[in-house]
Design a protein around this nucleic acid. Structure first.
Length: 707
RNA sequence: UGGGGUGUCGUCAAGCGGUAAGACACGGGCCUUUGGAGCCCGCAUUCGGAGGUUCGAAUCCUCCCACCCCAGCCA
C-alpha cells in the first residue's frame, strides 16, 4: 500500500474535504473513483489522477472505485480495459471488488431518461446533427429551440421507446434535455442525452442500440456509486451546472465535483489522440515503447511504481495550467534507483586495452560492492585478465582541460582492480582511429588502493574481454526536442518536433558476467553510466537487451558542453555580435588574455537578462591592463555603477566613451576583480576594433529597459 | 463580443489580513575507489498591472491586462 513518506502536501482538494468532514456534509464519508474510458492506454497524466483519487481515499480511510466510462462502443475495446487494470495495479493501488462500468448502469440510466421525459424535461429531437449544431447558436448568439421541442410526453415516450427498439437509423434522432437554448453556457442548450448507435458494446454486446452520452452518464454513475468527491479535470468545469441539473431534476444523491489541472510534462505529449497517432504511424513501436509517457512505457523503460507515485505527490494539485519539467520525473527515478539498483559494470562502446605486464592466461576474481549505499546488498566477484574493454570516451589521445580520465602516459584506477598507466596507442592505418591501448598495471594497487598513497583523478569501469557477455543496449532520450511539442503557434505540427535521436541502439556492448541470466525487468546501475533494465519483450536467455532508464548526472558532459560552446564563439571572433560578451573574462584578474566565454548565450538567456540603457559618465584605462577600461555608468539608479569592461582594444581612447549610451547587463552579481568591484557588464560586439554602438528608436533615458 | 477558469522564482507549488514554505533546475563549496550518491551554502524586498481599504495586503475591494477551456449525436 503506497504510503506517503511524510505528511501529504496541502492542496485545495484536501481543504475542501477537510471542510466537508468538519460540516459532516457526507456523514464523514470520503469515497472517490478513477473513471477512465477504455479507449487507449493510461499515461502519466492518468497516474496523477489515480494517485490523487486512490491516495485521497486511502488517507481519509475511504474506498476508491475503478470505473470504466464505457459509453461509446465505437471507440472502446477489451484490450484497453485489460491494460488499464494492469497499470493501476502495477502502480500499487487496489480497488477490491469495486470494479464498475458505466455500462452496468445502462438500465438505470434508461429509467432516469424516462423519468425526465415524464417530467417534461427531455424530448426526442428529429433534427440532424448538422441542424442541431446550427440551432445551438454560437458563443455570443443564443440558440434557437428545435421545432420538436414541445412534443407531448406521450409522443416522446413512444419515440424514445422506438429508438430503443431499433426502429430508427443511426443519427436520425436523439433524446435531449429540455433546459435553455439561450444559456450562455453552451452545455445547457438542450444537450444530447441519448444517441442511436447500432454498434456492439464490449460488455453489453447488442443489448442496446441507443447509448447515453458521457454528460448524461457520468454524474449519475457517481451518484449511483455514492461517490462523495467526484474529481475530474478542468475542461469539465462548465459541465458541472449540467451534471447538477440532471441530479437535481432526478432528485437523487448528489456528489460534489471538483476540478483540477491535468498534467503536462515537458518534452512529451499527453493527449491520447497524439499518442495513438505515434503508435499507429509507427513513430514508436507501440503503447509500451519505452519512450512513451504511458504507464506501460515507463514500466518497460524501467521506472518503478514508487518513483511515479513520488513524482505525482511532488507535482502537487492545483487549478492552473502548467507544464511540469520532466527533469523532476527523472530526479524521482534516479533517487529511487540509487537506493535499490545493484551496481554492475558494463562497457557500451568498447575500446580494447591490453595490460602488457599482466601474465597471459591469468585471471583474478576481484571483489566488487553491489551497492556503496547499502552494505547489505553484498559483494560479487568480477574477473580481471590481460585484455579488457574500457569505455571509448574514457580515453583521449589529446585530453582537453579538466578531462582527467585516461590519456597517453596517464594513470587511472580501474574500479575494484588496479591502477593502470597508458603506455601505447594502436591506431588504424587508414582511419587513424584508436583501436587499442597498451597499458601497464601496478600489482601493488590490487583492489584500487595505492600503498604509497599516490592519487589518481579518475576511476574507470571496465570488463574483461574474454569473460564479458555481449549485450544490446538501447539508449533513450526525450521523445521530442521541444519542451512543448504542442505549441504550434509557428504553424508546426507536434510530429515535426520528434527527436530523431530519441533511440540509439548499441549492439556490441559488453557487460560483466554476473549479468548472465538476468531476469526480465531487473534493474541495475551500470556504474558511471546510468540505470538500465532488462527489456521485458526482446531480452532472452541467449540475447541480453537492456533499456536505459535514466542517465546518471554527468558533470564531465556538462563541462565538455560548456567548453565546446566557448570554443565555438572563439573560433570566429567578431563573427558573432556577442563575440565580446563574456561573463568571466578578466574576472579573476590572473590572466590578461581574454578567456572564451563560459557558455554560448542564446535568446533564452536574454529573456532573463536585464538589459538597461547606461550613460557613460566616466571612462578610463585601467593601469596594469591593456584590455580593461573602467567605466562609471548611470543606469538611472541614482548612483553610478563601476564596471570593468575588456573593450580597450576597440577604444584606445577610453575618454571618448564618456557621454555615450551603452547597453548594460544590470542583473549580474557584482564581481570582485583585481582592480575593483565590477557591477555589471557592457554589452558589446563587432570585431576587435570597434564597439557596436546600440541604436534606439527614441532617445532613451539611463535605466530604460532594453528589449 | 457570451460563459467558465487561472495568473506567486527558470519549472512545479505552499500561503486563506501580520510582513514570501518546499521541491526540481541552476550556481558555488566539501567529500568521494561511480566526475554517481551524500553534505553545506546561494537562489522572489516581492506575488500579472494600476488604483483603493487597512496600523499592516500575495491575501479584501475596483478597474485593467494576459493565458486556458466551451459551439461532438467524444470523453
Amino acid at each position: 500500500m503506497p504510503k506517503p513518506d511524510s505528511t501529504p502536501p496541502s492542496n485545495f482538494i484536501r481543504s475542501i474535504i477537510d471542510e466537508d468532514l468538519k460540516t459532516n456534509k457526507y456523514g464523514g464519508r470520503v469515497h472517490t473513483r478513477f473513471p477512465p474510458e477504455p479507449n487507449g492506454y493510461l499515461h502519466i497524466g492518468h497516474a496523477k489522477s489515480i494517485c490523487l483519487n486512490f491516495g485521497l481515499a486511502a488517507d481519509y480511510g475511504g474506498p476508491c472505485n475503478l470505473r470504466y466510462d464505457d459509453t461509446n462502443p465505437s471507440k472502446e475495446e477489451p484490450e484497453y480495459v485489460e491494460s488499464i487494470r494492469e497499470d493501476v495495479r502495477w502502480l500499487g493501488f487496489d480497488w477490491g471488488d469495486r470494479e464498475f462500468y458505466a455500462s452496468d448502469y445502462f438500465d438505470q440510466l434508461y429509467e432516469y431518461a424516462i423519468q425526465l421525459i415524464k417530467a417534461g424535461k427531455a424530448y426526442v429531437d428529429d433534427l440532424s446533427a448538422d441542424e442541431i449544431r446550427e440551432y445551438r447558436g454560437t458563443l455570443t448568439k443564443p440558440g434557437k429551440e428545435s421545432p420538436y421541442r414541445n412534443r407531448t410526453v406521450e409522443e416522446n415516450l413512444e419515440l424514445f421507446e422506438r429508438m430503443r427498439a431499433g426502429k430508427f437509423e443511426d443519427g436520425s434522432r436523439v433524446l435531449r434535455a429540455k433546459i435553455d437554448m439561450a444559456s450562455p453556457n453552451l452545455n445547457m442548450r438542450d444537450p444530447v442525452m441519448y444517441r442511436i448507435l447500432h454498434a456492439e458494446h464490449h460488455r453489453s454486446s447488442n443489448k442496446w442500440c441507443i447509448y447515453p452520452t458521457y454528460d448524461f452518464t457520468h454524474g449519475q454513475s457517481d451518484s449511483i456509486e455514492g461517490i462523495t468527491h467526484s474529481i475530474c479535470t478542468l475542461e469539465f468545469e462548465d459541465h458541472r451546472p449540467l451534471y447538477d441539473w440532471f441530479l437535481d431534476e432526478l432528485n437523487v444523491y448528489h456528489p460534489q465535483q471538483i476540478e483540477f489541472a491535468r498534467l503536462n510534462l515537458s518534452y512529451t505529449v499527453m493527449s491520447k489522440r497524439m499518442l495513438l497517432e505515434l503508435v499507429e504511424h509507427g513513430y514508436v513501436t507501440g503503447w509500451d515503447d519505452p519512450r512513451m509517457p504511458t504507464i506501460s512505457g515507463f514500466r518497460r523503460r524501467g521506472y518503478t511504481p514508487e518513483s511515479i507515485r513520488d513524482f505525482c505527490e511532488r507535482i502537487g494539485v492545483a487549478k492552473r495550467d502548467s507544464i511540469v519539467d520532466i527533469a523532476l520525473l527523472e530526479h524521482c527515478i534516479r533517487k529511487d534507483l540509487n537506493r535499490r539498483a545493484p551496481r554492475v559494470m558494463a562497457v557500451l562502446r568498447p575500446l580494447r586495452v591490453v595490460i602488457d605486464n599482466y601474465p597471459e592466461g591469468q585471471v583474478e576474481e576481484l571483489d566488487a560492492l553491489n551497492s556503496p549505499e547499502d552494505p547489505d546488498m553484498g559483494t560479487r566477484k568480477v574477473p580481471f585478465s590481460r585484455v579488457l574493454y574500457i569505455e571509448r570516451e574514457d580515453f583521449r589521445e589529446d585530453p582537453p582541460k579538466k578531462f582527467y580520465r585516461l590519456a597517453p602516459g596517464r594513470e587511472v584506477r580501474l574500479r575494484y582492480a588496479y591502477f593502470i598507466k597508458c603506455v601505447g596507442v594502436v591506431k588504424d592505418e587508414q582511419t587513424r582511429e584508436v583501436v587499442e591501448l597498451h597499458c601497464t598495471y601496478d600489482p601493488q594497487t590490487r583492489g584500487g588502493d595505492s600503498p604509497d598513497g599516490r592519487k589518481v583523478r579518475a576511476t574507470l569501469h571496465w570488463v574483461s574481454a574474454s569473460h564479458s557477455l555481449e549485450a544490446e543496449v538501447r539508449l533513450y532520450d526525450h521523445l521530442f526536442v521541444k519542451p512543448d511539442p504542442t505549441d504550434n503557434k509557428d504553424g508546426s505540427n507536434f510530429k515535426m518536433h520528434l527527436n530523431p535521436n530519441s533511440l540509439e541502439t548499441l549492439t556490441s556492448c559488453h557487460v560483466e558476467p554476473s549479468l548472465a541470466g538476468a531476469a526480465p525487468r531487473s534493474r541495475y546501475q551500470f556504474e558511471r553510466l546510468g540505470y538500465f533494465c532488462v527489456d521485458s519483450v526482446d531480452s532472452s536467455q541467449g540475447r541480453l537487451v537492456f533499456n536505459r532508464t535514466a542517465t546518471l548526472r554527468d558533470t564531465w558532459a556538462k563541462i565538455e558542453k560548456t567548453q565546446a560552446k566557448g570554443a565555438k564563439v572563439t573560433e570566429a571572433p567578431g563573427q558573432s555580435k556577442l563575440a565580446h560578451l563574456r561573463k568571466d573574462a578578466p574576472a579573476t584578474g590572473r590572466r590578461e588574455e581574454l578567456e572564451p566565454i563560459g557558455e554560448e548565450i542564446n535568446i533564452d538567456d536574454f529573456s532573463k537578462i536585464d538589459l538597461r540603457v547606461g550613460l557613460v559618465r566616466d571612462s578610463s584605462a585601467v593601469k596594469g591592463s591593456n584590455k580593461l577600461i573602467k567605466l562609471m555608468v548611470d543606469i538611472g539608479e541614482g548612483r553610478l555603477r563601476q564596471i570593468f569592461a575588456g573593450i580597450r582594444p576597440g577604444y584606445p581612447d577610453p575618454e571618448k566613451l564618456v557621454g555615450k549610451k551603452v547597453i548594460v547587463v544590470a542583473n549580474l552579481k557584482p564581481r570582485q576583480m583585481k582592480f575593483g568591484l565590477s557591477e555589471g557588464m557592457i554589452l558589446s560586439g563587432g570585431d576587435a576594433d570597434r564597439l557596436c554602438a546600440p541604436t534606439f528608436e527614441h532617445d532613451p533615458l539611463p535605466g530604460d529597459k532594453v528589449t
